[in-house]
Amino acid sequence: MTDDQAQVRIPRQPPLSWRIVLRVSLAGMQRRMMRSVVTVTCVVLALAFLAYMLVLADITQALVELNDSKLNILLSERGVDIFAATQMDAMTLLLIGLALLTCTVGVANSMLMSVTERVREIGTLKCLGAQDRFIIQSYLVESTLQGLFGAAVGVLLGCAVAVAASSATYPGYVLSSFPTAVVLRSLLASMAVGLFIAVAASIWPAAAAARRRPVDALRVEE
């Protein structure tokens, strides 16, 4: 059969290198600045809150461990249970959970809008030979960068506010007994959470975008 012989001539489209995906995603983000800003802001706010709570708990714990009688009075006045300060109460955990959930929904929403805006573009790119993989990769790169940036800014912001607030409340104690290692661990954990949220929230929109057949994508009116 000539058909069988001919088939060999059509190779599989090889995947594109991550460098090219990165370049395309970066250019897109730059020109769609507003959309990126919305996503990043979502992550910044939620992560600032998370980092603030964690760092404040770390600092309070360090102060409790000083076991300084004057400081203990001050701590008690602020409502800190000096015998169980390490445990966050249920209300705090709930608040953090809610903030993170809102952030996830916000990022997913922003990504979905971005997909909807670009349905035709995705269809066109597929006509030019883009594979589903490329579409997913470019969305993942976009959300990873936004997640990293948003989380870094948010975490630093939250940490700064926590240090400033506790320094004001317990003047003279915080900087001298600053639990650097523990706080760093909290900041890294917050970063990881932020990155995870940004990437997880964009997987479904990215997959939805990639799955669209070019025929349907091109038919969409803008």
Binding site: P11, R12, Q13, K126, L128, G129, Q131
Partner: peptide, 8 residues
């Protein structure tokens, strides 16, 4: 993937 190559 072959179709993508073909279109491209």
């Amino acid at each position: 993937d072959q179709l993508a190559w073909f279109r491209c």
